[in-house]
Nucleic acid binder design. Structure first.
Lengths: 128, 128
DNA sequence: CCGTATCCCCGAGGATACTG
DNA sequence: CAGTATCCTCGGGGATACGG
């Protein structure tokens, strides 16, 4: 392999690195799940909360705000009493669904293989 | 959970969830970068270390072992003196490059938009 | 209803030193 | 050369209580 070698490696050394930047936001525990849920349309805070039973209000709030900051999600406040807030995907957010679904599809197709690899590895190194 | 509505939501509630499972491994700081680097062929431990200047030996070791566990990477030990160890992608690992590149492409194309969204958000909420 | 503030825990990950 | 072992820090994220 061309020992010109690491010249071609990548973009990962860019400052700031777009992939790191995206991954740091999307790689957390809730972002992908929220995007998936919001794909189905506009939802209120409490609707999302009920949809994802095991998220805390704090993390829901934080994650939504980050997604809003990054332009994935639009937040609309209706100053009624009691207040109503609705969240929906932006165009940018919707455009992200494509790579996301590619990733999800791969995960579904290969989950089995990964599990097998793990137990195989576990078998070989079980004796310690 | 069937609210009529959220019935179609997803797979994220599967136990165990394939996406969570994949993301927990791939969402860390180094895995994607290692896969990217190993795409270029078989490499020794120290070669990888030099390629990614800012990774610690410990994290390199851990991340490689996890990738090996999950069947993304094959590790070959040559019991010479001094020892030589080579790492390369497996078929599973190579198959993952496809969704990964889709994600990377999206990140590159939309990084600008994300940055703009951030500074716009920062502008609106800067006064606090 | 829609959040924020506070406290706390735990694991990712860096730095450094040691081993086969 | 290719790792482990140890120590430490920092931030994600849960639980709970409070505020507009």
């Amino acid at each position: 392999m061309s020992h010109g070698k690491l010249v071609s490696i990548p973009f990962v050394f860019e400052q700031p690195c777009p992939i790191r930047d995206v991954l740091d936001r999307i790689g957390d525990q809730w972002s992908l799940l929220l995007l998936e849920v919001l794909e189905h349309g506009t939802m209120r805070f409490s609707e999302i909360e009920r949809a994802i039973t095991d998220i805390s209000k704090q993390m829901l709030s934080k994650t939504l705000r980050r997604l809003e900051e990054d332009g994935f999600v639009k937040r609309t406040l209706y100053p009624e009493v009691p207040p109503r807030v609705e969240y929906e995907l932006t165009d940018l957010g919707r455009s992200f669904l494509t790579p996301m679904k590619t990733l999800i599809a791969w995960a579904n197709e290969n989950h089995q293989a990964i599990c097998e690899a793990r137990s195989e590895y576990g078998a070989k190194n079980g004796g310690r």
